[in-house]
Design a protein around this nucleic acid. Sequence first.
DNA 1: CGCACAATTCAAAGCGCTTTGGAACCGGTC
DNA 2: GACCGGTTCCAAAGCGCTTTGAATTGTGCG
Lengths: 341, 341
Amino acid sequence: MNLKQLSQHLKLSQTTVSRALNGYPEVSENTRSRVLKAAQDLNYRPNIRAKGLATGRALAIGHVIPVSTQHEMVNPVFGDFIAGAGESYAKAGYDMMLTLVPDQEEARTYQDIRSRGTVDGIIVHGPVINDERIALLSRIGLPFVVHGRSTDVNLPYSWIDVNNRGAFERGTQFLIELGHRRIALLNGLEHMDFAFRRRKGYETALRNNGLSVDASLMRSEEMTEVYGYRAAREMLARSETPTAFVCSSIITAIGVRRAIHDAGLVLARDVSIITHDDALSYLQNGDDVPIFTALRSSVRYAGREAAEMLLSLIAVPKSAPKTRLLEADLIIGRSTGPAAT
Amino acid sequence: MNLKQLSQHLKLSQTTVSRALNGYPEVSENTRSRVLKAAQDLNYRPNIRAKGLATGRALAIGHVIPVSTQHEMVNPVFGDFIAGAGESYAKAGYDMMLTLVPDQEEARTYQDIRSRGTVDGIIVHGPVINDERIALLSRIGLPFVVHGRSTDVNLPYSWIDVNNRGAFERGTQFLIELGHRRIALLNGLEHMDFAFRRRKGYETALRNNGLSVDASLMRSEEMTEVYGYRAAREMLARSETPTAFVCSSIITAIGVRRAIHDAGLVLARDVSIITHDDALSYLQNGDDVPIFTALRSSVRYAGREAAEMLLSLIAVPKSAPKTRLLEADLIIGRSTGPAAT
DNA sequence: CGCACAATTCAAAGCGCTTTGGAACCGGTC
DNA sequence: GACCGGTTCCAAAGCGCTTTGAATTGTGCG
């Protein structure tokens, strides 16, 4: 069933039917309702490719996920983020398009996306420090919103991000106030912008309290369980052990907890953990009482908001970049306590 | 830069340029290389919408993710699955389209997808027992591959699945051979087909060994950490505690481990755990020595294969359904030991 | 009743590509 | 020199939709 058939069936022109369907004013209410009814009955759906060709809009948003050949990891945050974004798209009648990009081919790929005309805008995931994609996309002129920010990029661009620095400063401060002095940081890979900012926050809190920044208490790796376990195990075997850990991911925190148990220590009493928590639906941090004391910020919410920002950017062509900084909540769970003396 | 401009630039007709670009034989090698060079230099990319309109193919595959309004959970497996599928699509020049479908609107949505013509085929995620979508899609005539199967559906259809039943039978058998008699099952929601099959496997192993199936040792819920924790905690507080747990997810297994620790027991010595492991990139089950004894099957690999099955289904129009059963590996980790006597 | 003007409706062009059905050209053959 | 088959190229139609510009119908008023 296409427009032509539908209009023949109704004995109207394609023009009129098209207008009736798309809510243009120059068609009488009478015919409009006739058309809508027929469309409903005959199960008519406009062909989106043809529509796109005619209007020049794709009615789709692209999500570009960098796939590093070195670290094969799929960002666990991704599922929840697109679930959030998907809600916004569904409401607006947009489709969501996914592209996996091997990191060597980035420049080419964005050009491709632009000229193939499959999407009206894109969401950029996983920004690194001084991310080249931002300049590239600005140059190309494809609307985009970054999930995160990129330190050292000076162009104006649209982004939505958690206040990573503030959150980690706050979390570290919280531990210091509990009497902790040797606080370890198990961070993500620090070429990633979010991880870089988190370290800054952690260091700021230490310095503000006259504590020295000890490189031997800092790690930066892909945030797996095993990473948390290994790092904590090694640190807890020293003569001077850390009394608290700040983790960039709940998964890493789980590894740390395992190391603590293995060492015969008790969480919160002997060693404290505070972690960032993206509020992932399948990795919830307990329920009424959180397992881990955490800096929580829903990535699903971020997805929803990012999508809406992008859609409004697309709706108003030459609009100025939008930015949005989300604050993480510090929620107290069962993983922190006063420093053992 | 479009075809018309390119052909004018080359002083050739659009026909010839199009043919040269798409590798048709009726164009001399000479002009072909001229065309290719010009396309390269001028950075020409065919508009995919126009191409789709003209050929009737969308060059895109849809992934439809059911979003239940009750359980807000995003399947954690999803990220890895599409990472795998994405690899296959990239090679074949296909795009990947995501659609989130609230479960009430399923029927309408698939119809929509079909008639909007955005995709050439779809991958069906999260099949339940007697899943209606399979009949629906067969009727509509849209090529599809199910990730999983659906018990009680009698039509032929294409699927790729892990041998869930066999795996859980084997895992349970393994525990029985270690001397365990009271073995708990912490399963996923059992209207999901995979969970249903896993229970069957578990029960089969018990029966084969003359053990009774004890409903009080079986749970069926969304596979979170807290679920594992709660269920294990409750069971371990009984007078007759289970000596081993079979879990449907590594996340749940982590919760069980926490409960074991909290109860002052030691994993493997006092209580054993065996779990299904989807080999998720961000939730790896240890490295050299796995943390959990597990039934492992890479969901990323499944994604890659599912995509390839679907592409070949699309390439050969009336082809018969393809099916593929993957076997899970039983890998021995540090979470199992002989039953405490 | 006839006219101006608004309210409806329509035919046709165009979006960028593929593909059909020929046309033009080439060297070789009788 | 006419003819032929093969090679190389082209004009034009068509995919399903939107949108421009024009035609048709309806309405109010002098």
